[in-house]
Amino acid sequence: MDNLRIRILKDKIFSFLVVILAFLACLPLFLILGFIIRNGALSINLDFFIHLPKPVGVEGGGISNAIVGTFIIVFIAFIIATPFAIFAGIYLSENRKNLLAEIMRVSVDILASIPSIVIGIIAYLWIVKPMKSFSALSAGVALAIIMLPVVIKSTEETLAMIPYSLKEASFALGVPYYRTILKVIFPAGLSGVITGILIAISRIAGETAPLLFTAFGNPFMNLNITKPMNTITLVVFNYSTSPYEQWHKIAWAASLVLLIIVLGFNLLSRIISRKWKVKF
């Protein structure tokens, strides 16, 4: 019977370890949130949102240009990626067992696995080099490439889940194929597609690596997409790695703004996928 006691003891120790490790892994979350909210909240005020960065030594200053820049670049990526991604997702969900579709699926997987810094190189080669200038446009292209596989996959997966009977019902009413897809299948999967888009946006809004040599950064307000532009992530990177105490404060505040944007989109995607689920 001693054997049994040892076995039970082992089990207890193991369970204890699992629980401790699992919750220990959450610790960084609270440290990060704590740090950012505490430090960030100190230097955040209205000026932060409406002013431009000030040179070292001058107190205050904001990141209005970076906030605007982040939205512009994410918007460019969204505009470029979404139509292609949705149509490609439709193709894949409509062609389950076709060799070409299978090859495309592999290419989507490859695209999803390319490190974002390499995507930055591509945008540099394709856009920055021919245009001879760093630009918001090139950054948008880079982020669009990152966004594509995410949206394609979520579109494919949601559309493939829609029962075939729905499509049949539409065909039986004499509705052409293209209208069946666009007006029956797509609306039925819309919440899933939107969820995928929002998750992708939340991801690209936090990207930094591919922007280093595309958007490049810019201390001034710029709305011209063929010129370098600042983003919040670039501010966090450049300011946090600088030696100036005052810039670190700005980096904390910028991190807070970034976190709110990124987690906001993330939360929105969850709400939509939960609340707006179509019952079949």
């Binding site: 729905l166 049949e168 039986a172 009413l173 509705v175 209208r179 019952k279």
Partner: peptide
């Protein structure tokens, strides 16, 4: 459109109201 069909399992369009479901043949076309 001339020969309508009703399936073994009911399959109303989940995104449409009852009203729109009845009209779905027109709406979708």
């Amino acid at each position: 459109r001339k020969i309508g069909m009703v399936f073994q399992r009911p399959n109303p369009f989940p995104t449409m109201s009852i009203y729109d479901n009845v009209l779905s043949g027109f709406i979708l076309n």
